[in-house]
Nucleic acid binder design. Structure first.
Lengths: 212, 212
DNA sequence: TCTTCCCTCCATCAAACGATTGAACTTATT
DNA sequence: AATAAGTTCAATCGTTTGATGGAGGGAAGA
């Protein structure tokens, strides 16, 4: 039994899937309350009632968008993990940062929606019980901080969270930051990678050096 | 000639100031569009029309709240800078992180509102031309990354931004994060400081060591 | 051709929202 | 006491918002 979301992910040309794509972008840009169903309908090029026909009410569509971006992000993380497996720590982190920033710059709404969920609250009680824990464990394993999921301490997940959020804030903050520096997107993206590697790699390699 | 905001900051007991305080909290918690003027009025314990009498329309109040938290943050940064001046880099950063996290945990709406401005957009064109540049320069000088404001490169301001945003995300994300780990506030705060120092200090001290 | 099912839009509703009006109340000044 | 200025609130206005009902259209099968 396929959920509506799974059907939409399989057929990206369908109206249902196009609504979801628009929803990701608009929700990511303006946040939940800053987005109206009319905005999403207009972005998709359809009537509001068509939107409600496919996705139910606004809250349902929002939650579908959240789950959708989570799946995309997880998929990407698994791909990156495959690529860096076995490499030395510094190299592993450098490649992971490079790939993830590239990917998130192409899909900034992922970073936007994730950060918005951390920071801001909707006025409706959301019933999305996120599996952030196992999600974090995936990254921790990928970074070589733990060997299996059972040993994930709060301290380690905190470190993983710091690295991920550092990337997300740079992606989400591009428009704001570039409005000050007047850099091009390419300059900004290069600067982001440099800075992320400069800050995050030394901490983890230094600890590895201490431990061996 | 005192602006309305300056008057409100001088007399914290006035209705006008109490509205501003409520506005900071509610805007910070729900974001601009997630906040209604009625919510702020109720939080303050007054009627909506009183709110409009003192602060004009919603947008004006929002911008006053932004300016207010910016002034508070700047004031705190100056105080911290005085405290750490002359100390070695690692110690300087450790104390700065300690003081800033303590302060922001007491006023989480500051972190919330700052991050929300980076990430999410309001549907109204904001005319707050922020002096983020000189703001960033203050911190850079405080961290000992530059000696005077003129030499602030984009790269250095990027590093400053990364550190500040790292703190902000941990402050703003407390509720979200603790809903998973079930830690107490005290445990969380200690963990945040540890993690922030673990990640951010090595990068800067390593570079200092290379340069001397 | 007729029927059925899926999909789309027009028209519309009730509730929520930002904002204003005008009356009443308080305080300070003369 | 009388006047004026400053402040508060109940009532209300016009608009936006989320959501729905019902009519129309087109494809597939009988």
């Amino acid at each position: 039994m396929a959920t509506p979301l799974e059907k939409a992910r399989r057929d990206p040309e369908s109206t249902k899937a196009r609504i979801l794509q628009s929803a990701r972008r608009v929700f990511g840009y303006y946040g939940y309350h800053g987005t109206t169903t009319r905005m999403i309908a207009q972005e998709t090029g359809i009537d509001i009632s068509t939107l409600h026909y496919h996705w139910g009410d606004k809250k349902d569509l929002y939650e579908a968008a959240i789950i959708d971006i989570t799946k995309d992000l997880k998929q990407k993380l698994i791909a990156v993990e495959k690529e860096i497996r076995g490499l030395p720590l510094a190299e592993r982190m450098a490649i992971a940062i490079d790939r993830m920033t590239d990917y998130l710059f192409e899909h900034p709404e992922i970073s936007n929606l994730i950060l918005l969920r951390y920071i801001s609250k909707t006025r409706y009680e959301g019933n999305l019980d996120f599996k952030v824990t196992e999600f974090t464990a995936d990254i921790a394993r990928s970074m070589g901080l733990i060997t299996d999921k059972k040993t994930l301490s709060t301290r380690v997940s905190m470190e993983v969270w710091a690295v991920m959020n550092s990337i997300h804030t740079f992606i989400s903050g591009e428009e704001f930051y570039r409005s000050i520096t007047r850099d091009s997107h390419e300059e900004y993206a290069a600067l982001v990678k440099e800075t992320l590697m400069f800050i995050h790699i030394p901490a983890f390699t230094a600890r590895e050096a201490r431990q061996t």
